[in-house]
């Protein structure tokens, strides 16, 4: 299939592994899905320590279920990415360990206190789900199928995160203040989740033309703000003065003043080059190396059992 045909036919769940897709499509889809898969892994690792730190047995159970889900999402997504024939799962996991693999900006920052937890578990999961719901209509069918299952599970993540936020904001004055502090720290990062405005984002156009994406960064960011700004306020969180967020009466949507955000930091992170990037990638790489023996023993088992299969006569 040539690129023109791809653009003409682009629509929800239009293309499948049996279609002969041009390399440009397969590479763009791989980049996007690999990024998504990596982000699931790194998000899971960021939250993992909070299974131990959770303040009650209910939170502990829910948190461990959530982390399990995230790693499961990564597995689904690596399969969807592999189905494009550009990279194997092995290659993608290695790239993540050696610092080449890219992932979501929010997962490059350390998360230390329980007050920070809902910033990820409510706002970042909420933002992710907002985006993922639109990806059910992506043109690469295996990706859309992965989104069906991911979105099925994510509702619990977002509600669990919101429940933690609600609990904290109904706590003591000191707890509320610490939660507000955490919110101020994370809020700009959460807005940057959706990336820069459309004209600054490099891969955006092509991904939309071929139906990999159905909504632009701007649309997603604005509609996210429409839902989550009132939510934050409902729990008594104060929206920081910067970045300036204005409500556009005519369009009935929020807009963010992009110049108020730290884009140097964003692009440093995008290159995996912040202090936090090194920290997060390093600890994940360490964990991967520690269980190398498990993968090795599975590989040798697979090879041993394959030799039993009769070879095709030629």
């Amino acid at each position: 299939m040539d690129l023109e045909t791809v653009k003409e036919r682009a629509g929800p769940r239009q293309f499948a592994p049996k279609d002969d897709m041009p390399e440009k499509y397969r590479k763009a889809a791989t980049r996007m899905i690999q990024f998504h898969a990596n982000s699931e892994v790194m998000g899971g690792y960021l939250e993992k320590p909070f299974i131990r730190q959770a303040p009650s047995i209910d939170r502990k159970l829910a948190f461990s279920a959530k982390v399990q889900d995230e790693i499961g999402h990564a597995q689904l997504l690596y399969r969807a990415a592999e189905s494009l024939g550009i990279k194997t799962r092995e290659e993608m996991l290695d790239e993540l360990a050696n610092g080449e693999g890219k992932f979501l900006n929010c997962f490059h920052y350390p998360m230390e206190s329980w007050h920070e937890v809902p910033m990820i578990a409510f706002f970042v999961d909420g933002a992710a789900m907002h985006r993922q719901a639109t990806l059910k209509n992506t043109s690469w069918t295996p990706y859309a199928h992965a989104m069906d299952k991911v979105c099925f599970e994510e509702g619990f993540h977002v509600k669990h995160g919101e429940s933690i936020l609600s609990e904290l904001m109904n706590g003591s004055k000191a707890t509320q203040e610490k939660t507000q502090e955490a919110f101020e720290l994370w809020w700009p990062r959460i807005i940057q989740f959706f990336g820069p405005t459309n004209d600054k984002s490099v891969h955006n156009d092509f991904a939309q033309q071929v139906g990999l994406k159905t909504k632009s960064n701007d649309e997603l960011r604005d509609t996210f703000l429409d839902t989550y700004v009132p939510k934050a306020e409902k729990y008594g969180l104060e929206i920081p003065e910067y970045p300036r967020i204005e409500y556009d009466e005519a369009e009935e949507t929020y807009h963010v003043n992009e110049d108020d955000l730290d884009w140097d930091e964003f692009w440093t992170i995008a290159k995996n080059d912040s202090e936090g990037s090194h920290e997060q990638i390093g600890s994940r790489a360490h964990a991967q190396a520690a269980v190398e023996w498990v993968r090795e023993s599975m590989d040798s088992w697979e090879q041993a059992s394959n030799t039993g299969t009769p070879q095709a006569a030629d």
Binding site: F122, G126, M129, H130, Q132, A133, C151, F152, E153, E154, G155, F156, V158, K159, H160, E162, S163, S166, T227, Y228, K231
Partner: peptide, 14 residues
Amino acid sequence: YTDIEPAAPEVAES
């Protein structure tokens, strides 16, 4: 999480 209303349509759908 009965005390929490779904934050967004996609949460309600899930």
